[in-house]
Amino acid sequence: MIEKANLEVFSETLLDLARHDKDIVVVTSDSRGSGKLTNFGKELPDQIIEVGIAEQNLVAICAGLSAVGKKVFGVSPSSFLTARALEQIKNDIAYSNHPVTLVGISSGVSYGQLGSTHHSIHDIAVLRAINNLNIVIPCDNFETKKIIQAAVNFNEPLFVRFGKKPMLKIHNDNQSFKIGKGISIKEGKDLVFIATGETVQRAYKAIEILEKDNFKCTLISMHTIKPFDESLFLDSIKHTRGIITLEEHSESGGLGERCSSILAQKKITTNFKIIGFPDEYMINGSQSDVLDHYNMEPKRLAEIAKNLIS
């Protein structure tokens, strides 16, 4: 079933929470439209701070607001938030330990044809290298809602990113959820897909294809990249013939390399494939065309999976 965009769920959830908690403050950088926060601004004008097109300013202001007791959500396109304002994230939020939630909207290649300046395929990698910063990436509406609800009173710096396209329903509403604990969606012995964020959906469809050919697959939604759920990862791969990781991010420094480092250090050898964006000048196209081009089309994923274990 197709539901809403995670972006939409984020803004509705936040507005709901902010109506009952005056300490919640949102900070935007000419990004309230892109963040679907126009209604938030109309209904709760005193709980939204607009700083203009100034992402560095935004992040440092978030730190200041947090320091005096506000529950702060800084919302800006993930590319500008995490590249432009990286030093503010590193020093003013993470190092200074202000429990701000930074929300990277239109992440990955959501901006399609707008090109490289607008893509954020570096954000997981750079933020992973920063101490004291949690990184969470929802795969569907359910995870998005749970993350935003948890973020309000989360006592540590947090980064969340998602896209703006409608998403498939992946989880049941009674699924338990905790930041830091991945979720096993399907279990099967032949192959394990470890995916994060909206690429879980592509793995889900690939598995439907593989199941028709009698392959049994495990699917993990590794929504939290940091802290990484190493025990779930190790449990899930125990008896498998192969592992595929999937992320809307560069192959460098993301989920796949996180997994490969664990495998190498535990001396686990198995069939293993990282699927993300290679280190090249990125092809031009819509978000889905770009994802398809870089092996994330479900049909192609199923082929790669079969080849990996044959």
Binding site: Q113, L114, G115, T117, N284, G285
Partner: peptide, 12 residues
Amino acid sequence: NKFNSHFIGHPT
């Protein structure tokens, strides 16, 4: 803005 065109939505 077509797939694989160099003419993307920002100057390159």
